[in-house]
């Protein structure tokens, strides 16, 4: 396969994962009123981002994550929710990069929990900036606590996705210069 064909293929996979991430974000948006605690969501879209990170490449995952934040904000957000989402996504991505360094000493479960916790921290930092008060950090312990089971859940989903989604996808990183 030529490099250009591989690029095109990676682009198609990115677009597919972005669409899936958007759908999962929408699903969570619909489920939000049903969840009792404020600001808590499953983080299903992160399964797509992490899948992209490990299958397609780190830079691809960054692009998909940012696009997801922008499009989600355009479709069903407002300015504060966009800033929350952006800082959450940036922090989660930073955690993902950091936690991918240990390689085989860490599993998808730990990486996912780290991402979830970083996402919560980023969102509350955004809230503190938007509202100009550190008082919102009072929510942080609850959100960190919840990020452990929810991060584990999304990590398990990711393990499932990575083992079930066919091997045509992983050839992208190996054959192309992407």
């Amino acid at each position: 396969m030529t490099a250009r064909a591989t690029d095109t293929r990676a682009l198609a996979v990115d677009a597919l994962l972005l669409a899936a991430a958007l759908l999962l974000s929408y699903l969570e948006f619909l489920l939000l009123p049903a969840i009792l605690l404020p600001g808590i969501k499953l983080g299903l879209a992160n399964v797509c981002i992490m899948f992209c990170f490990f299958r397609v490449g780190a830079r691809h995952a960054a692009a998909v994550s940012l696009m997801r934040v922008f499009i989600t904000a355009l479709l069903f957000g407002n300015l504060p929710s966009f800033i929350f989402s952006l800082l959450g996504a940036v922090c989660a991505y930073a955690a993902l990069v950091l936690l991918s360094i240990p390689g085989r000493h860490i599993s998808r479960l730990g990486q996912s929990v780290g991402c979830a916790a970083a996402h919560a921290t980023g969102q509350l930092t955004a809230a503190a900036l938007v509202y100009g008060t550190a008082g919102v950090f009072a929510y942080l312990p609850v959100m960190l606590l919840v990020s452990v089971p929810l991060g584990t859940l999304t990590g398990m989903l990711l393990i499932l996705c990575e083992s079930k989604i066919p091997s045509t996808l992983p050839t992208i990183r190996n054959k192309g210069n992407v």
Binding site: I106, G110, G114, A117, F137, L144
Partner: peptide
């Protein structure tokens, strides 16, 4: 077989941070 040592470290750090931030205020 999935769980690796550093997973536990991540979880411990997150829980410890939660506890500290909860206690301080």
């Amino acid at each position: 077989s999935y769980v690796k040592p550093l997973d536990g470290v991540v979880v411990a750090v997150v829980l410890l941070a939660a506890l500290l931030i909860w206690l301080v205020p």
